[in-house]
Design a protein around this nucleic acid. Structure first.
Length: 520
RNA sequence: GGGCCGGUAGCUCAACGGUAGAGCAUCUGACUCUUAAUCAGCUGGUUGUGGGUUCGAAUCCCACCCGGCUCACCA
């Protein structure tokens, strides 16, 4: 038994509702709400009756609860309502499941029954108490003895049938309706949460320390990207939203923390497509006394751990293709990968002129770029990347593309770096971190020349970071993982928007202003 | 930024130059074992916005807004 306090509440009128225009359907529900208030019932009560079970627990424990005649109290949203005169069946839904409730006039009394029929609507959130039984059609059901409105829904749900809310713009702008109407969307974010939890657990178990570094930075760095700019009023100072956590995490390595990681948002002021959202979740990991081969092993083991933890298998279905995560994953140098795909040997064609001549001779259709390194990158993107569906490490990148990575001892034009590719997309990026402050200074200067030449993504000189390196950073392996992209693989989604709860969308303009702009 | 496709009732969609419709939801009525309940009846629209062409525009044209795919940019 539960009794909810009833309060006589203020009127909603008096100009307070001026901003919330109600359409016909909403007005109908608002009228019902007012009728309830007039009868002394609170449509948005402060107190909730004690919930004895979730709807899934009701299903799991049904036999015992029914046999014992236990009175249960459950709550949920009304998803379906079938009224047949003096009785009604109602389908309730909560976070993880659904259950049927049976209202009969004889059981709950004339007045509460009439109140339910008159005042409740699809989408309302209610609590019901009663015992359990099985209907003639075999459906486990609560025989309601009492019911209480917990929250009146003014806006009707899209459609009582699942999956009928499919307009992708509406789904992302009104994610709350999407989550309510499309249970598989909830599943996507459950899997995403379990994935992130597994990554964290793996790193914690390996002795890494989770840390937090600044999002607001006076100097951005750690990646090739354009930043978002913001401003601190009191300090009269422009600040950047971070594009990477790298340079701060390596300062911690200098500080002898040895094994650290951070999971957080990075922000890049760039185009938006199915693999890029302006803000995205990045995992970065740094380990002292290690190099990029250590990070390759770690990446492989961590993703394998996550797949086992989330799915219990290493074979993931992605858009009809089985992605096999069974280690070891192939490790191919960028030189070999390009040679295999185009028969051009970038080690032999080691100047821009000879490389472009080779491209011309091979009749390859790629854009021409101003530097050798960018031309190599272009070749790779155009002829190799899309084909990397199964997990593959591509190793050893041109130096100029990687100003924070250590040179390969045998060939100073290449650095000790790898990227992990799956489903045709970059998933992770790692290198043997450059800890030589003098070489790092040279690389920053090199970037500065690129910036002056018009490369807006070139890195800025970071003198404070150089100061840190002068204190001495141990040999270190560093790794960055695109968590959203990994989530795309784990949830079998083709766009990053589907694995981000509130992906970036343009602001909806007022009709009047858009008309004014249109006419201007 | 370019190309292509789209925006019509609360939701999902028709109508493609001649009165803007259906299913579900809503509303009214019937119904005490339904489960996409059923039956009967009634509602519901500035067709994204603003112009233009036309006797007549959701439909054709132009501009703009929002979205999707794609290319480019970009890791």
């Amino acid at each position: 038994m539960f009794v909810l306090p009833v309060c006589r509440r203020h009127s909603y009128d008096g100009g307070l509702r001026i901003l919330m225009e109600l359409n016909d359907l909403q007005q109908t529900r608002y009228t019902k709400l007012q009728a309830l208030q007039e009868q002394g019932f609170e449509p948005y009560p402060a107190r909730v009756p004690a919930r004895t079970h979730t709807l899934n627990e009701l299903r799991e424990q049904f036999v015992a609860l029914e046999a014992a005649g236990t009175v249960v109290t459950v709550m949920g949203r009304i998803r379906q309502r079938r009224v047949m005169g003096k009785s009604a069946f109602v389908q309730l839904a909560d976070a993880n499941g659904g259950f049927q409730a049976f209202f009969s006039k004889r059981d709950i009394g004339d007045e509460p029954y009439k109140r339910f029929i008159d005042a409740s609507d699809l989408g309302d959130i209610i609590a019901v108490s009663g015992t359990l039984f099985v209907t003639k059609m075999g459906e486990p059901t609560v025989a309601v003895q009492e019911w209480t409105l917990l929250s009146k829904a003014i806006t009707p749900p899209p459609d009582k049938r699942e999956g009928q809310f499919s307009d992708s713009e509406a789904r992302h702008r009104q994610r709350y309706i999407d989550l309510m109407a499309n249970p598989e969307v909830r599943d996507i974010f459950r899997i995403r949460a379990r994935l992130i939890s597994a990554l964290r657990r793996y790193l914690d178990d390996q002795g890494f320390l989770e840390v937090e570094t600044p999002v607001l930075q006076s100097l951005y760095g750690g990646a090739a990207a354009r930043p978002f700019v913001t401003h601190h009023n009191q300090l009269h100072q422009d600040l950047y939203l971070r594009i990477a956590t790298e340079l701060y995490l390596k300062r911690l390595i200098v500080g002898d923390m040895e094994k650290v990681y951070e999971i957080g948002k990075d922000f890049r002021n760039e185009g938006v497509d199915r693999f890029h959202n302006p803000e995205f979740t990045m995992l970065e990991v740094y380990q002292a006394y290690a190099d990029y081969t250590t990070m390759m092993d770690l990446t492989e083991a961590m993703v394998v751990f996550a797949a086992q933890a989330v799915f219990g298998t290493l074979q993931l279905d992605y858009q009809g293709t089985t992605i096999d995560l069974t280690p070891p994953w192939p490790r191919i140098s960028m030189r070999a990968a390009i040679q295999q795909a185009t028969s051009i040997d970038i080690a032999a064609e080691d100047t821009l002129e000879t490389l472009q001549a080779a491209i011309k001779a091979a009749n390859l259709r790629v854009d021409l770029h101003p530097t050798w390194a960018k031309q190599v990158d272009e070749l790779f993107s155009e002829y190799v990347e899309d084909g990397l569906v199964q997990p593959t490490f591509i190793t050893d990148y041109p130096r100029a593309l990687s100003p924070l990575a250590k040179r390969k001892p045998a060939d100073p034009n290449f650095v000790e770096r790898f990227e992990l590719f799956m489903i045709g997309s970059e998933m992770a990026n790692a290198f043997t971190e450059l800890n030589d402050p003098f070489d790092q200074e040279q690389r920053f200067l090199e970037q500065g020349r690129d910036y002056a030449a018009g490369d807006e993504e070139a890195m800025q000189m970071d003198l404070d970071y150089l100061e840190a390196l002068k204190v001495g950073m141990p040999p270190t392996g560093g790794l960055g993982v695109g968590v959203d992209r990994l989530a795309m693989l784990f949830t079998n989604q083709t766009t990053i928007r589907e694995v981000i709860l509130f992906p970036h969308l343009r602001k909806v303009k007022e009709a009047a202003s858009s008309a004014a702009e249109g006419g201007a």
